[in-house]
């Protein structure tokens, strides 16, 4: 450090020194960093349990310096339910992609939200199956080309993209639902605030909290990280609007 300067930002201590395997520009790593910053700020490193899915983020336990349980494909919500019921005072979150949460694990997600299980979902929605070779996901946009929809997604055959944040916001026992993105510095700051709010609501035992992240996949969208930000702005955000869908009512003083 040069003399006369103060440190105002450094890599959070809750991230390990392991180099992340994600492609350059992937929002998985951005969200890992933002979540671990929140855990560090709330001083909950010893009291946080994460549940990791199958997908690109399957090795998240290598990067987050907290307790992490690996779940079977799509069953992170069920595993998190069990952990939270045994350890009601710990901070528990499930970290899932769209293939895990919205495709194979839809039943677990819907029923965990319907029961109002008191943990946080972090849902990384990049609209494609990134790890397995860029196949069409339930959240792939209409007309978007993937390896299993080479002429673009056709709603007449496979329906419209699934809006998970809107769906789970209808359940009575879900406390907080917000969709965020990391495509600009301002949105990334909002994403961090949303994660912090969700963790605080969880510690107040208000019910399920659900954060959907409109994410990118430069490798499987076949573009550069910069172009993926433009795609998010021009195509993803008009269909998946950002914002708070449900929030607990503030108690009047």
């Amino acid at each position: 450090m040069k003399e006369g300067y103060e440190l105002i930002y450094q890599r959070p201590k809750t991230l390990t020194d392991t180099r992340m395997h994600y492609c350059p520009g992937c929002f998985h790593s951005t969200m890992h960093k933002l979540m671990m910053e929140v855990v560090e700020e709330m001083d909950l490193q010893e009291n946080t349990i994460g549940v990791c899915p199958v997908g690109c983020s399957v090795f998240a336990y290598e990067y987050m310096n907290i307790d992490v349980q690996e779940a079977a494909h799509g069953r992170a919500a069920a595993v998190a339910t069990g952990i939270k019921r045994i350890h009601p005072d710990k901070l528990v979150f499930s970290y899932q992609g769209d293939g895990d949460l919205a495709a194979i694990g839809t039943a677990e997600t819907i029923h965990a939200c319907n029961r109002g299980e008191n943990f946080t979902f972090i849902f990384i929605n990049n609209g494609i199956y990134g790890m397995t070779g860029g196949q069409m996901a339930p959240t792939t946009l209409v007309g978007q080309k993937t390896s299993t929809s080479p002429y673009g997604r056709e709603p007449a055959k496979v329906g419209l993209p699934l809006k998970m944040a809107e769906i789970v916001s209808r359940f009575g026992r879900v406390a907080y639902v917000e969709r965020v993105s990391c495509n600009t510095a301002a949105n990334a700051r909002k994403a961090k605030k949303a994660v912090r709010k969700a963790f605080e609501y969880q510690l107040q035992k208000l019910g399920t909290t659900f954060i959907e992240v409109a994410s990118n996949c430069p490798s499987q969208w076949k573009c550069t990280p910069e172009e993926s930000l433009d795609w998010i702005k021009d195509h993803v955000l008009p269909y998946f609007p950002l914002g708070v869908f449900k929030e607990p009512e503030k108690k009047e003083k």
Binding site: E6, L15, T30, K33
Partner: peptide, 21 residues
């Protein structure tokens, strides 16, 4: 100007920021 924008968006947390006292 030590605005932290680069550090917030950096996916790999490779940036450290210092501000003049």
């Amino acid at each position: 100007i030590a605005c932290l924008n680069c550090a917030v968006v950096c996916p790999d947390a490779a940036i450290t920021v210092y501000r003049k006292i």
